[in-house]
Write a protein that binds this DNA or RNA. Structure first.
Length: 467
RNA sequence: GGCGGGGUAGCAAAGUGGUUAUGCAGCGGCCUGCAAAGCCGUCUAGAUCGGUUCGAUUCCGAUCCCCGCCUCCA
């Protein structure tokens, strides 16, 4: 039985889908005005893992991940670059898709762009106005009246009285309450035409929060199972979504709220505003995508993780152990990369693995099972165990490659020898060994080692891998 | 100031009221021409101070420290 930590109730709860066998999940995506960084990679990989595990658990999942393609930063960046908003956002949507593919992510079932749903947002704001939650402020912006919504603060555990809106940032003039947030922003003369849509309140553009309420209800219905995102979205973004969606539609909005922890650098949150970020492509230039996935999944999704080369190197070493184990097992027809392997969930390792994953997606524990399995295989366990290892790895999108390919993959930053060059050296060494010229054979091995190529003599001959 | 999450061995990271987490690194051994890989063995834990308990890293309280949210942020 799957249990998930629900941010709304602050406890792990048994997961019960609204519709048996089906899961509808909405995850807040990215604002497209710059390259994605490792923090984005984390939420992308975490909810990719969640989707895969739900599917492995025989749920039919509808996964929606949105794209925010209109906001202040986008408008500003487009102006700085002297390009249209659409040019800017199209480019970064394309980059996002490239990064997602490079990370080996499943495509979401829907990837809605906010600007394609302006009409739905307008009608939702109209409903909120009719229901008495929205008002037109003195500056003509349409705002949400937070105090009218009884449940405000239930997700973030904050009480309206304790919030200190305006303490750090000036409060917009004309709001009835400093905590009220904008639903519809009135256009100003300096705003580009591209950022204006007509509405009952005049030309303008939507506030940030309304897009997720409008798009989720459009694509998943007014009430759905899981809503996810980074922990920094819990307040105010997700709190405001609840206020909007439950204010517009009577009844519950989301059953389970999931929030992933941050990626840190030197114990500080990695973020665009702090400027301490590494883009996904920068990291992938140095590390294999599977190593990055392994690094992320090695920690529980709610825990913070620190990014550093040392940790990525460590992850690579650890993952290599699993691949080395698989390499030593003779491949059968089933070990090919084609098609998912079936899993015997009654086997002891699979049971442990599933128990871990069902316990709020405890991937560190699940991965520990993988290592126990590898140890057993290395000890001379049955060859079928290698199938189990691969099949369980598959549910995390790990261990699906030819071990040789993984172990010999060249980091882009290394201008090492070609495979052919290495094979030639190995042949030369074999000849030296045959004539028992160990000085020469060791010299060759040391030379290769110096450029990061490790040789291993096995009964089947010499193999190599990258250090 | 309010709210929330943490402090586990050299590093990373889980579970757990009593029995080996796991990985990387280290040390000893086996294997090897020598290595590597692997196997066997092994050393470094649970911020501090109290309490509950036959027994606490695990429960309770206090203290110290770190991080996050309260502003755009995954």
């Amino acid at each position: 039985m799957l249990k998930i930590y629900n941010s709304l109730t602050r406890q792990k709860q048994q997961f019960v889908p609204i519709e048996p066998g089906r899961v509808r999940m909405y995850v807040c995506g990215v604002t497209v005005y710059d390259f994605c960084h490792l923090g984005h990679a984390r939420f992308l990989l975490v909810f990719d893992m969640v989707t895969r595990w739900l599917r492995a658990s025989d749920y039919q999942v509808t996964y929606v991940r949105n794209i925010t393609d209109i906001d202040d930063k986008i408008i500003r960046r487009a102006a700085e670059n002297n390009e249209t908003i659409r040019e800017l956002t199209d480019r970064f949507v394309a980059h996002l898709d490239e990064d997602a593919a490079a990370l080996g992510l499943l495509a979401p079932d829907h990837q809605p762009r906010a600007t394609d749903y302006i009409g739905d947002m307008v009608s939702m704001i109209t409903t909120l106005e009719r229901n008495g939650y929205a008002y037109v402020a003195a500056n003509r912006d349409v705002c949400y009246s937070v105090r009218k919504f009884a449940g405000y603060g239930k997700l973030s555990g904050k009480s309206i009285e304790d919030l200190r809106a305006g303490e750090r940032v000036d409060v917009m003039e004309g709001k009835h309450d400093p905590l009220d947030f904008v639903l519809w922003k009135q256009s100003k003369d300096i705003d580009p035409v591209e950022a204006r849509w007509s509405s009952p309140w005049g030309a303008g553009r939507p506030g940030w929060h309304i897009e997720c309420s409008a798009m989720s209800s459009k694509l998943l219905g007014n009430h759905f199972d899981i809503h996810g995102g980074g922990a920094d979205l819990q307040f105010p973004h997700h709190e405001n979504e609840i206020a909007q969606s439950e204010g517009a539609h009577a009844g519950a909005f989301v059953n389970v709220w999931m929030h992933n922890g941050f990626v840190r650098v030197d114990d500080e949150k990695m973020s665009k505003s702090l400027g301490n970020f590494f883009t996904i492509r920068e990291v992938l230039a140095q590390y294999d995508a599977e190593v990055v996935r392994f690094f992320i999944l090695r920690a529980h999704y709610r825990s913070p993780i620190n990014y550093s080369d040392v940790h990525l190197d460590d992850a690579r070493q650890a993952l290599s152990r699993l691949y080395i184990c698989l390499k030593a097992v003779p491949a059968t027809s089933e070990t090919g990369t084609s098609g998912p392997l079936s899993i015997d969930w009654n086997s002891p390792h699979a049971q442990r693995f599933r128990a871990a994953m069902d316990d709020d997606f405890n991937t560190p524990e699940a991965i520990a099972v993988l290592f126990d399995l590898a140890a057993e295989i290395n000890r001379g366990g049955a060859a079928e165990l290698a199938q189990v290892l691969r099949a369980l790895g598959a549910t995390l999108a790990l261990l699906q490659r030819d071990p040789q390919v993984f172990l010999q993959a060249t980091p882009v930053t290394v201008d090492g020898l070609s495979a052919q060059g290495i094979e030639a050296q190995i042949a030369a060494r074999a000849a030296a060994k045959k004539s028992r010229d160990f000085v020469e054979s060791d010299r060759i091995r040391d030379t290769l080692k110096a450029v990061g190529v490790l040789l291993e003599d096995t009964p089947q001959g010499t193999t190599w891998r990258r250090a």
